[in-house]
Every structure is written in C-alpha cells, then in structure tokens.
C-alpha cells in the first residue's frame, strides 16, 4: 500500500507524506537513508526526527518468540494518513515518512518507522512524537505474540515510559 500526497504545510510550502504498510521485513535506518537520497527531502529541512520501533524478545515478564500483526485493510492506511495530515497542520514539517510492518514478525525486526523533516528541531520532534503516540493508541493494528505456552493477544500498549507501566 502506497500513498503520496502534497499539500501546503504551515509555512505554505508543499509537504510530502509517504505512508506504507510492509508485509516483508525492512531496515528502518536504510529506509531513511534511501528516502533522503531519493530527493524527497527539501533542502530547507534542518531537522530530521526519527522514531523506530523494533520487536522485543520479552513482554509482560515473558519471553516472546515472534508475533503476528493484524490490521484492518483500508482503515489502517486511511487512519495513518489522517494522523500525518493532522501533524502537518499542527507543525511546520516538510516531509513525513511512516512505514509499518504487517504479518509475521521475528525478534529484532523493525515494526514501525516514523520520520519527519522540518526547518527546526521542535517541529520535527513534536510531530514525530504526536504521530507515534496516535498510531499506538488509535491506528487499527493488533499484536498476537507467540510465547512458551502458545499464543496470546496483546491487550494494550504501554504508556511509553517504563516508570509508568
């Protein structure tokens, strides 16, 4: 699934968004490098903010062997695009790249990449944080983990801070 669109950012310049669901493994760092090299990044972007989520080998005190990520085809893409549009309306970002895995995922594989580019760090960092938090709490994805006793659905995402879990 691919989506590209251009619309004015707060600075009045066209912004680019790319949202993709990936059924196969990807290297998030390489994806950022390739996106920059593809010319998708405006020369005006002085700040790049990147969040990468990677599959852990433990959750809720148990070893996790692998997992499956279910999604709602159509709604998931639509929701991610909507989150990006909201971020673009709130912060002066030039580019947004969001990749998310689906299907069977092994320990150590990247699950999600959120990268934003802006003239200044505040807009980039805040937009990235906003996108990943909304994605975690509202985008239709569901994790099912394989643990020693079998499989289990993950009931909820954590708050994002170890101290608050």
């Amino acid at each position: 699934m691919k989506s590209l669109s251009s619309r004015p950012s707060r600075e009045g310049e066209p912004a680019v968004m790319r949202v993709e669901l990936r059924p196969a493994p990807f290297d998030a760092v390489a994806e950022v490098r390739d996106y920059r090299a593809s010319g998708g990044i405006s020369g005006k972007s002085g700040a790049t903010s990147i969040f990468i989520g990677t599959m852990r080998d433990f959750n809720e005190g148990e070893e996790v062997r692998n997992m499956t990520l279910e999604h709602y085809p159509g709604m998931t893409e639509k929701h991610l695009e909507e989150i990006c549009k909201q971020a673009e309306n709130r912060w002066a970002v030039h580019d947004i790249l969001v990749l998310h895995r689906t299907g069977d995922i092994e320990v150590g594989e990247d699950i999600v990449l959120v990268a934003t580019w802006a003239a200044h760090r505040g807009d980039a960092i805040d937009a990235t944080r906003f996108i990943i938090e909304d994605l975690k709490h509202r985008a239709p994805f569901w994790k099912k983990e394989a643990v020693s006793e079998g499989e289990r659905w993950v009931d909820r995402n954590t708050s994002g801070y170890l101290s608050a879990d």
């Binding site: 699950i111 239709p140 009931d155």
Partner: peptide, 10 residues
Amino acid sequence: VAFFPPVTGG
C-alpha cells in the same frame, strides 16, 4: 461496521 479490541500497533 467493524468491532475490534483496543489497538496494539507500533
């Protein structure tokens, strides 16, 4: 109409 549990992506 779709029914689903709390989401757990990312």
